[in-house]
Design a protein around this nucleic acid. Structure first.
Lengths: 148, 148
DNA sequence: AGAATATAGCATGATTTTAGTGCTCTTTCA
DNA sequence: TGAAAGAGCACTAAAATCATGCTATATTCT
């Protein structure tokens, strides 16, 4: 339906939260407490993000997750691709071929649309995503150099 | 999953097909014969498009559907909105408010993304969609003035 | 008037995706 | 060694999506 899944939404929310926590490790518990999203689901999402090295995990007391790169360098496209796979707009845009390929007259067009949508996601960074909204609760080191 | 539904896909395919048929009315039967998509589903989609006055219907022999406006003036955004409702990217972008609104820190950001995605769809016309792909089977009156 | 073509309307079933959850294991730090 | 925190594992429930059959109504042509 041209919508992100909850996985992506939760993932992005969590990442935005982590972006504000700077270098510190943030536990699932903390995130859940603040954001009020299902814990187990978030845990799964973060595990996937960890596997894809978008975040890094540390176990044990004081552990949790944190970003592996500055929020300015993490595109939504990357996050979304990890959390819901390649191929936006239509399935056939993920490289696989369409079942009705021979009769489909709009394949190329759709691919072009998909490309543009993807570039929207590519140009949008996590920094921008969290910047848009947050009342900037505490000075965040990573967001230092940004225009106000 | 940031994907269009089959309804949208089928709808766009059918519209592209109609765009090539110019002023003539095209029946569901014809479209199905060429495009090999489920008839009943297509019929429903076209009915919706007819209700929204994107196409006009004529019953009886020689009847069918045809575009109510030139393909150059029909944006994908309009079609998609009719076929799968407003609010791309996330549900909360359709004007309704989010369940986790207070805790959601990325609302504004997501809305911005949605806006950009929507403008991609807005800028993409049916004419472009079918132009990208089709080997231009027959000269279509509506497509006359376009660059080659 | 009647036959043929075509859309309109209606309800339902099957499949797929998505969302959500419980419990145990392993790692790490104090 | 105990508490904190992620890792792994399998399943259930709900929602969205896809698909389909049949009948009714409108229109055109003969």
């Amino acid at each position: 339906m041209l919508r992100l899944t909850k996985r992506s939404e939760y993932g992005l929310m969590a990442l935005a939260f982590m972006a504000q926590s700077g270098q510190a490790y943030t536990s699932v518990r903390e995130i859940v407490a603040k954001l009020r999203i299902p814990r187990r689901l978030l845990a799964e999402v973060l595990k996937d993000l960890s596997f894809s090295e978008i975040v890094e995990a540390v176990r044990g007391p004081g552990g949790g997750y944190r970003l592996t790169c500055p929020a300015e360098e993490l595109s939504l496209a990357r996050v979304v691709e990890v959390l819901e796979g390649a191929g936006t707009v239509a399935q056939c845009t993920d490289g696989s071929r369409c079942d009705l390929s021979p009769s489909c007259t709009i394949q190329e067009g759709i691919n072009l649309v998909a490309q543009r949508v993807k570039s929207v996601l590519n140009d949008f960074t996590l920094a921008e995503l969290s910047d848009c909204t947050t009342p900037r609760p505490q000075p965040v080191s990573l967001a230092q150099g940004l225009a106000v």
